[in-house]
């Protein structure tokens, strides 16, 4: 009787079956190609804007379950568990766009160059001047084509 697995030592000092077990895990992030199949207009929008190179799932979250089951439902009738999030808070945009010296890549006396547009989200158009209602970033900026 062998205490070690039969595949132990096939490639090295380890169980060779472990490779297939790890490789067999399910994926969660499906990739932009599977989003574009249905969400054509959003994809076309995004292609033209500054967010063109961003994968959809960076903002909307992992969509592999959504993508594989969404076809079974009529549009707009998806159960909540399959819906992806549409982040709307200022805080979410701030993850990339909040002022931070580490995001400024070239700093001169006159200009600061950074890969992303930076703004202080804490005082940039926080609320409407008359009505005092708080603004969200997406009230003015289209996230697909900012």
């Amino acid at each position: 009787m062998h205490l070690s697995s039969s595949s132990f030592g096939k490639y090295g000092h380890y169980r060779a079956f472990a490779l297939n077990e790890i490789a067999g895990k399910k994926i969660k992030y499906a990739g932009e190609a599977s989003c574009v199949v249905c969400h054509k207009s959003e994809a076309n929008h995004k292609k033209k804007g500054d967010h063109a190179r961003l994968s959809c799932e960076i903002c909307h979250g992992a969509g592999s379950r959504h993508a594989s089951y969404a076809g079974n439902f009529k549009s707009k009738n998806l159960p909540d568990s399959l819906l992806l999030n549409k982040p709307v808070e200022r805080q979410f945009c701030a993850r990339c766009h909040q002022d931070n010296l580490a995001r400024v890549k070239i700093k001169c006396d006159t200009i600061n160059f950074s890969a992303v547009k930076l703004v202080n989200t804490k005082d940039h158009n926080v609320a409407d001047e008359d009505t005092r209602l708080p603004y969200k970033c997406i009230d003015c900026h289209n996230p697909h084509m900012p």
């Binding site: 969660k28 992030y29 990739g31 190179r53 961003l54 994968s55 799932e57 960076i58 890969a115 992303v116």
Partner: peptide
């Protein structure tokens, strides 16, 4: 996943 989701 971390490579696919890097925006820059």
């Amino acid at each position: 996943a971390c490579f696919a989701n890097c925006p820059t």
